[in-house]
Design a protein around this nucleic acid. Structure first.
Length: 316
DNA sequence: CAATCAACCTGGGTGC
DNA sequence: TGCACCCAGGTTGATT
């Protein structure tokens, strides 16, 4: 799924392919709801003839700055893909919107699930749209101390908190699970109870993870592709996401999976123990059974993956 | 403020 | 082969 590293990869591709080029107009519209504009029909009129002056990213939004002080904001949501192709090339099965470019190319938006959105914004509207977003995890303003300070103020559990775009912008389910594993933090720990050391470790692991994922061109799980149609390589390097039952790359214990805030959550019960100050905050009943299973596995005299796996199968 | 849930959508997988 | 069913997840908005 497109999260910060995937969106950043797409942005870089678009910057390379669109810089300075003109948008002739709307050339294809299979799913009108993709276009978000208060006045129906206005989008088509407003977009025509503008030139792409730059490609930025904020959270999971791709922002194409256009001539005449407008910005095109593209959100891929779950399955969106943006790609630049010759207008003569056949459209994909899930083509939803296309913009005609100079040089007989098209900027195409394909989206199987039809969740993705494209909006055209004035600077003021864009400011409003971006106002609720939290800091960029890779931004200079977010120092380790600032991040620790934000964590200290919140009583939410780490997993849902890190997914909250108002707390920190750009993470999704895959990278939250990966970051927590790297930092050795259980997804259900309460943010405000982390030690200074834990906050700092999470900060550094998070940034390192995102940088590595961007360097790999992102994670291709099912449909994600960059602006050139290329898949990302990070999926092979993931440590816990969609690895239930497989041995932890760090300790060999079986990776576990549970649902937190309606999200599939993957973690290593051995590397990410539910202990410390965070464990003093009462755990809702629905997680109790899981905890017993974890503890049983962790303290088993044999240890290791095989016993852990057996312990989790017994739980079902 | 925190947690849960429904809604938006459909491809892909499972079981029968 | 077909069909009913469920799951995946980014985001918003309503409710407890």
């Amino acid at each position: 799924m497109p999260e910060l590293p995937e969106v950043e990869t797409v942005r870089r591709g678009l910057a390379q392919r669109l810089q300075g080029r003109a948008i002739r107009g709307l050339s294809y519209l299979e799913w009108p709801r993709t276009i978000e504009h208060p006045v129906a029909g206005e989008f088509e009129r407003l977009i025509a003839g503008r030139r792409v002056e730059g490609a930025r990213r904020r959270a999971k939004l791709i922002l194409l700055d256009l001539s005449g002080d407008y910005s095109l904001a593209i959100h891929l949501r779950m399955t969106g893909q943006v790609i630049v192709e010759p207008a003569s090339a056949p459209r994909g099965r899930f083509a939803r919107v296309a913009l005609a470019l100079d040089g007989d190319d098209e900027l195409r938006f394909d989206d199987a699930r039809r969740f993705g959105r494209i909006g055209l914004y004035t600077p003021a509207d864009l400011r409003t749209r971006l106002a609720r977003l939290g800091p960029e995890p890779l931004g200079e303003e977010l120092t380790a101390a600032a991040f620790a300070g934000r964590l200290r103020q919140r009583r939410a559990r780490l997993k849902p908190l890190l997914l909250d775009q108002a707390f920190l912008a750009g993470l999704g389910n895959i990278y939250v699970d990966e970051a927590l594993h790297r930092a050795g933090l259980h997804p259900l720990l309460v943010a405000s109870t982390l030690s200074a050391t834990q906050s700092e470790l999470l900060y550094h692991e998070l940034r390192e993870l995102l940088a590595e994922a961007i360097a790999s061109g992102g994670t291709t799980f099912s449909s994600y592709r960059d602006a050139f149609g290329r898949a990302g390589d990070y999926y092979e390097r993931r440590r816990v996401y969609a690895r239930e039952g497989e041995p932890c790359t760090t300790c060999g214990f079986a990776i576990a999976r549970m649902t937190v805030g309606g999200r599939g959550t993957h973690y290593c019960p051995s590397c990410q123990p539910f202990t410390g100050a965070g464990a003093l905050v009462a755990l809702p009943d629905r997680y109790q059974r899981r905890r017993v299973a974890e503890t049983g596995g962790r303290f088993d005299s044999m240890g290791g993956g095989a016993t852990a796996r057996a312990s989790h199968e017994r739980e079902r």
